[in-house]
């Protein structure tokens, strides 16, 4: 099952794959806000950790195929320009 998921992430278009990353990041953030005021809710924490795992999976594939989302993810083989000279988030092309 995990393998099928991985394969489908590999075939996604750039914007589709970014959407996966954004979706899991948003879920993590919203659950984190909830956990700030409900720190003992273990169900919410488990949900957050599940989204984190899915996010890391999607994000690793995105970075490999389309370039870094954070500076520290920049890889030698892609060159620095894959971070600095690809569309910035406010450009229509980046969304």
């Amino acid at each position: 099952m995990a393998e099928m998921r991985l394969k489908s992430l590999d075939k996604m278009e750039k914007d589709e794959l970014l959407r996966q990353v954004q979706m899991h990041q948003f879920s993590m953030h919203d659950l984190a806000l909830y956990l700030d005021t409900h720190p003992t809710d273990s169900e919410a924490l488990e949900a957050l950790l599940a989204h984190r795992e899915a996010c890391e999976r999607a994000s690793a594939i995105y970075v490999r195929r389309f370039g870094a989302l954070r500076k520290e993810q920049a890889e030698a083989e892609n060159g620095w320009a894959a971070w600095s000279n690809t569309p910035w988030p406010w450009e229509k092309e980046a969304n």
Binding site: D15, L18, R19, V21, Q22, Q25, F26, H29, A68, L69, R70, K71, W83, W88, P89, W90, K92, A94, N95
Partner: peptide
Amino acid sequence: FQYEKALQYPVKI
């Protein structure tokens, strides 16, 4: 603070 190169929610006008 560290920058993430993506919007929280997409903007495509």
